[in-house]
Measured scan of single mutants.
Amino acid sequence: TTIEWNGTKITVDNPQKAKELAKKIAKKLGLTVKVHGNTITIE
């Protein structure tokens, strides 16, 4: 699972952990999480 935001890509083996990490990042930055299959985008 890949997390993408602002040109940065982070690959996380565990999809559940990836989703939790994305939510934490999005919350800190005041952004939203969008899931597209194996890609999680923070916008």
Results as ranks from 00 to 15, higher is better:
24 K>R: 13
24 K>D: 06
36 H>K: 10
31 L>A: 12
20 E>N: 11
16 Q>Y: 12
36 H>S: 12
2 T>Q: 08
7 G>S: 08
6 N>P: 10
32 T>L: 09
38 N>W: 04
23 K>F: 13
20 E>C: 01
30 G>K: 05
9 K>C: 14
24 K>H: 12
4 E>D: 09
17 K>A: 11
3 I>A: 06
32 T>C: 13
14 N>M: 04
10 I>W: 12
21 L>P: 00
15 P>L: 13
18 A>E: 00
3 I>Q: 06
25 I>H: 01
26 A>P: 01
12 V>S: 02
13 D>V: 11
17 K>D: 08
6 N>W: 14
11 T>A: 05
39 T>K: 10
14 N>V: 03
18 A>G: 03
26 A>N: 03
13 D>F: 12
18 A>Q: 01
22 A>I: 05
21 L>E: 02
23 K>C: 14
10 I>R: 01
18 A>F: 04
36 H>M: 10
34 K>H: 13
13 D>Y: 12
14 N>P: 07
41 T>N: 04
43 E>D: 09
25 I>Y: 02
29 L>Q: 05
4 E>G: 07
7 G>P: 05
33 V>A: 05
41 T>Y: 15
4 E>A: 08
4 E>V: 13
35 V>Q: 08
3 I>G: 07
32 T>Q: 10
42 I>H: 01
39 T>F: 07
15 P>C: 11
6 N>L: 13
9 K>T: 12
12 V>N: 01
2 T>I: 14
43 E>R: 09
35 V>G: 01
17 K>Y: 13
18 A>S: 02
5 W>P: 03
29 L>S: 06
24 K>E: 11
1 T>A: 11
10 I>K: 01
37 G>Q: 06
1 T>Y: 11
28 K>T: 07
17 K>E: 09
28 K>F: 11
28 K>I: 10
43 E>I: 14
38 N>Q: 07
31 L>E: 01
2 T>A: 08
11 T>H: 14
30 G>H: 06
13 D>K: 14
16 Q>V: 12
36 H>R: 11
32 T>P: 06
2 T>S: 09
8 T>G: 13
37 G>H: 06
33 V>L: 10
17 K>W: 12
33 V>Q: 01
31 L>G: 14
22 A>W: 02
38 N>R: 03
21 L>H: 02
12 V>F: 12
8 T>M: 15
3 I>N: 06
43 E>T: 14
35 V>W: 08
23 K>D: 15
38 N>V: 04
15 P>E: 09
12 V>T: 05
13 D>G: 12
10 I>G: 01
12 V>I: 13
8 T>Q: 12
4 E>F: 12
6 N>C: 15
39 T>P: 00
31 L>K: 04
34 K>Q: 09
4 E>Y: 12
22 A>F: 03
28 K>R: 12
30 G>S: 03
30 G>Q: 04
20 E>T: 11
36 H>E: 12
30 G>V: 01
32 T>W: 03
31 L>F: 07
32 T>D: 05
23 K>M: 13
34 K>T: 12
2 T>H: 10
